[in-house]
């Protein structure tokens, strides 16, 4: 069950001017949070009119013992800029944990495919999968040099990296879908997890074929409330009646993680 709580920033780690990692003391949320769930947090002061809405962020890491959660933030606008400038000790109002996270299996091999900031929820997933003995392979597609910092976040899982605009010739140029295709043709994976921008999700979705049934996609959509009240955040999923027709489902309550064979792009 999600809760509205006042949490406290313990540390803001500036990875570079584009990315930051927030360590937050929120024991009620840490206690029940699952990999793939998110929180909706207030970025302005209490009663703020600009920005008005809370902002959704994936739970990047969970430390139940210490009651901590970690968020990995990419600065894209007013709200994320404010977050990046926050200081240790400041309070944050948030609601969480929200949505349905990843459904983990405890055996076999897992392929985790991230596009950019899509790496955020995959860290906690990788931790939990490897703790239960699953062999984890991480693929990360990024745009440029600044994004490379995201690989350090995943260092212990030795991510394979591909870049749209590489700066040096030793770096591989291309899209993460190419890496995924190579991995899938050389090895069998029992579980595939994907998170990233929509064009990447769509391309991978088309490419997965018979692997779709073992795949899970974490989706992003512009949100209003984050808790199912407003129907702002919908995506297309297959109707349950087998007609092949789609319907709109709320990403915040039915997702953000959907099975590959249920989501429609």
């Amino acid at each position: 069950m999600s809760q509205i709580c006042r949490s406290q920033i313990i540390e803001v780690l500036h990875l570079n001017d584009r990315y930051s990692c927030l360590q937050i003391y929120a024991p009620q949320i840490a206690e029940t949070a699952q990999a793939g769930q998110f929180v909706n947090l207030q970025v302005g002061e209490d009663g703020s009119i600009d920005p008005l809405l809370k902002r959704p962020f994936s739970i990047h890491r969970i430390d139940r013992e210490l009651g901590m959660i970690y968020l990995l933030i990419k600065v894209v606008g007013v709200g994320t800029e404010k977050l990046q400038k926050m200081k240790a000790g400041q309070g944050l109002e948030m609601i969480g944990p929200l949505g349905h996270g990843f459904r983990l299996q405890n055996t076999g091999k897992a392929l985790l495919v991230a596009g950019g900031i899509g790496i955020a929820p995959l860290y906690e997933l990788a931790v939990q999968l490897s703790e239960s003995g699953v062999e984890v392979t991480v693929l990360l597609g990024v745009t440029d040099q600044k994004d490379l910092i995201l690989s350090t976040v995943m260092e212990e899982y030795d991510p394979q990296i591909i870049m749209v605009n590489p700066g040096v010739s030793s770096q591989r140029k291309g899209l993460v879908t190419e890496l995924a295709a190579e991995c899938l043709s050389s090895k069998e994976y029992d579980q595939i997890y994907v998170c990233g921008p929509e064009p990447m999700l769509k391309a991978l979705h088309q490419q997965l074929g018979s692997n779709l049934i073992n795949s899970q996609f974490s989706l992003e959509e512009r949100m209003g409330c984050g808790v199912g009240l407003c129907f702002s955040c919908v995506c297309k999923v297959k109707q349950d009646d087998g007609t092949g027709e789609w319907k709109h489902e709320r990403v915040c309550t039915c997702g953000p993680v959907f099975m590959g064979n249920e989501v429609v792009f």
Binding site: I49, D50, P51, L52, L53, E221, R222, M223, G224, C230, F231, S232, C233, V234, C235, H248
Partner: peptide, 16 residues
């Protein structure tokens, strides 16, 4: 309903 995006923030308000 309508296609997404279905919500946008504006000064002191939202459009849906």
């Amino acid at each position: 309903g309508n296609p997404t995006p279905r919500i946008a923030e504006t000064p002191a308000g939202i459009l849906n």
